[in-house]
Amino acid sequence: MKIEYRMFAVLGVFFACAGLLYGLWGHWREPVGAVGLFLATLLAFMIAFYAWFTGKRMGPRPDDDEAGEIDQFEGDYGFFAPYSWWPLFLGSSAALCFLGLAVGWWLFIIGSSFGVVALVGWTFEYFKGEHAL
């Protein structure tokens, strides 16, 4: 994880410097840029910290090794859903809810009841039955 956390840390330092420069140049009269840049600093440092922390917990990976081979990195990466209809269902429900904001609350209520079914369906899709994760 060395490369990952260094990349994001460098980005964080850059945003911090940019924010400071922006603020000093404008005599801190314009707050949007400064707030945006300093929170972008946090964005980068948040990922950097997590990558560093995970790297420390997991130990070195094959890709941290200069002489590492591609085939050393085989094996499980995690679980990825092979296919699922639920995202489409949930997206349509959300669209119906947003349409409801424009048309009327009655449509929002109909949309949200579809949304509940879709959300539960998606969350539990691979967590039930014989091959539950």
């Binding site: 009269r29 707050p31 707030v35 945006g36 990922i47 995970t54 995690g78």
Partner: peptide, 30 residues
């Protein structure tokens, strides 16, 4: 994998709130 993805998503959420903070400070200033 899931954990790393969550952190990346949360960092983008941070930028969403950055927008709200920026709105607050700007309007307060005027």
């Amino acid at each position: 994998m899931v954990a790393m993805g969550t952190i990346v998503w949360l960092s983008s959420e941070l930028m969403f709130f950055a927008g709200l903070f920026a709105i607050y400070f700007t309007i307060r200033a005027v």
